[in-house]
Nucleic acid binder design. Sequence first.
DNA 1: AGTACATGCAGGTCC
DNA 2: GACCTGCATGTACTA
Length: 615
Amino acid sequence: MDGEDLIFAEDTFPSLADFPCLSSPSPSTLHAKNTILSPCSSTSSSSSCWSFLQVPYGGRAADVQQQPAEAASSSEFSPDGLDILGDIDLLDLSIDPWEPCSLFHAGESSTAVDNGSVAIVDRAMQPCQVAEEASSEGHGEGVQQRQQLEDTSSEEPARVFLDWLRSNKDSISAEDLRSIKLKRATIECADRRLGRTKHGRMQLLKLILTWVQNSHLLRKRHRPTSSDDHQPRPFRNNCNNSTADQNPAPWNPNSTDPSAGATHPSLLAAYGIANGEMSYHGATAPYPYPHSCGTSSVVVNSQPFSPTLDFVDPTAGPWSSQLASALPSMVPPQYSGRYANQFVGHPMYHQGQHVPGLASATKEARKKRMARQRRLASLHHHRNHQNQHHLQHAQPHLGSTEGAARNWVFWTNSSSSSHQRNHMAETQTPPPAAQPQQMSPHGAASTSEKRQGWKGEKNLKFLLQKVLKQSDVGSLGRIVLPKKEAETHLPELGARDGISIPMEDIGTSQVWNMRYRFWPNNKSRMYLLENTGDFVRSNGLQEGDFIVIYSDVKCGKYMIRGVKVRQPVEAGAPSGMNAEKKAHRRRNGLEKTGGADKMRGNSIIHGDASPSVHG
DNA sequence: AGTACATGCAGGTCC
DNA sequence: GACCTGCATGTACTA
């Protein structure tokens, strides 16, 4: 990496003031020499460029490790300390074949290996600090958002880092990590903006990790590939791209490939690589990796934003929302407000570019979070009992083990459960319906969300999914639900009138009161979700899109999201045929339903379901 | 043959 | 007449 590269633009952070929770109340200057970001060793700008994962005290981790007592004894945040990772060597890494220690080769002057543990001591991480910060914060919104951040801040940085390492061990090498460098000014700016607090460090750590991940992916995408990367991607689109696009070569940080950039792109541009074309309208974005269809919607350093992007989860937890806050300039103005947070991790603007309407966007996001919190609190109170009952019926036909193994998907931002989260995610098995590897929404959720660490505020259990038919998105306002899944995961219905189920739209947090019922049909039943018209319209769902229904294990409520999966409408193409005309043709026998046009049940045929443009 | 499900459509209700 | 409700039927798929 070239030392001149600016990973974090200084003006990446100015708008943080819009998010009080991210603004440091007492800006101070960071002493770069004492951060975990140590000077680059190779470039002419070494004095202003710092290598991630290198260590304070002049750069040798061993030196750090020799001072744990001193570090631990520090009772207050040291102005000299900006250790992001905390005390990693507390963690047992022995079970992980990709141990972080392997990141650091013995003999390298800037590595941090000592008997298999990474010893980057967090001298500043004092429990009292968070409390002090919390008490010194304002009230109202600030407090509320602060609480959100506290959840994140309570995470051990080391754990977060290790989780991240594990999640990316297949794609990001030790060499990659070693090559990460941060410009001093960036760190100083981050220090000022994010605060030299636990929050700030966590923020910075996450920003860096996210950037690394995305930057790495960008390089992968831009790089001509070999076939040696067969690591399964958690969720690939099925665009008719070259194999190279889907099997990018390992990232070579020393590459001189101009397309990959011999130098790191700016952070913002780096975020741009995450631009996928998965249309995920107003819903969540559990897809951890970009899904470019060859024609990437990202053009680094030129046209930064493609309108085809609509991808990121606005309801994602503090991590992403903080990223959105910390990197507000990533939000294109046309997507401010409701969709502002959807561009978390998908910056569209480069350093130095300012986004009009940014303040309104961040305020909007803040409002939404607050509203969501209020709703959650309320719903939790009112529905907990009721839904406990529902959930007890959720899997009447499954043994507890089988049910858990099949369908549990966890998100949590709980610090204490991050490790557990990974464990749970790794042990779960997607249901049969999710076996299709590419476009299964459930597979997307379970695989990618766990890899990306998508941190919704809930523990969501996948219940069912349904590819929407014309009749589902028509004017009837009812969606036929797959019988087996409905009977398995939704409350048992005694009367045909069914029951009313409030469904919270994950994308908008709006609660839709839907009716779950059945019709007698051929000595059997057809299960329906009624009053879905508004939901469908508000999400712009059309035939071929799908819905996914979850239950929130914590609150016991039901949650729904609509996922748009469509190709751009092309004149004359069957997929572009007007739905009504299509239906009309069918009605008149001009077009027979069947064959590839038929998608039964939960199966998602991916032929024309590649993620793309919508609305 | 049995099942699931997409949707046609008849009958009722509303404006 | 438009819309709603709910049943019936046709089709695809599976055992």
